[in-house]
């Protein structure tokens, strides 16, 4: 039932992918198993080290959605600024965009064809 899907250049078969993933997983597990068993749960080892300061509560330091890609947004602020301005939320602008696209498409189709 799990056949091969032709995708233009190559092919895609989920069953081969799953078998590969399982094989890779087993190999990784073996490598992990050979490692040093020094990790001990519930000791000082598992706590974050913040320059000797007491650890603040998890609720206080959680990063909220708005700040998740802060650096990315900051780097691309020259792109995002005009884009946010373009999405003005005014219905007239939405219709103007439609008229602009209609005009361009008409010039291309009416002029070239």
């Amino acid at each position: 039932m799990f056949g091969i899907l032709e995708t233009g250049y190559g092919f895609w078969s989920p069953i081969i992918w799953i078998i590969t993933i399982i094989v890779i997983g087993i190999i990784l597990y073996i490598i992990w198993h050979l490692g040093e068993p020094a990790y001990k749960k519930g000791t000082e080892q598992t706590k974050p080290f913040l320059a000797g300061m007491p650890e603040p509560s998890k609720e206080a330091v959680t990063v909220r959605a708005d700040n998740v890609y802060w650096g990315f947004k900051e780097a691309l602020k020259h792109y995002y600024g005009p884009m946010i301005k373009t999405h003005s939320g005014i219905i007239n602008d939405y219709i103007s965009w439609f008229v602009v696209v209609l005009a361009i498409v008409f010039v291309i189709i009416g002029g070239l064809l």
Binding site: I84, H87, S88, G89, I90, I91
Partner: peptide
């Protein structure tokens, strides 16, 4: 006014 009724933007 369409300019003032736009909380959905960005």
């Amino acid at each position: 006014n369409a300019e003032k009724t736009r909380r959905l933007k960005g």
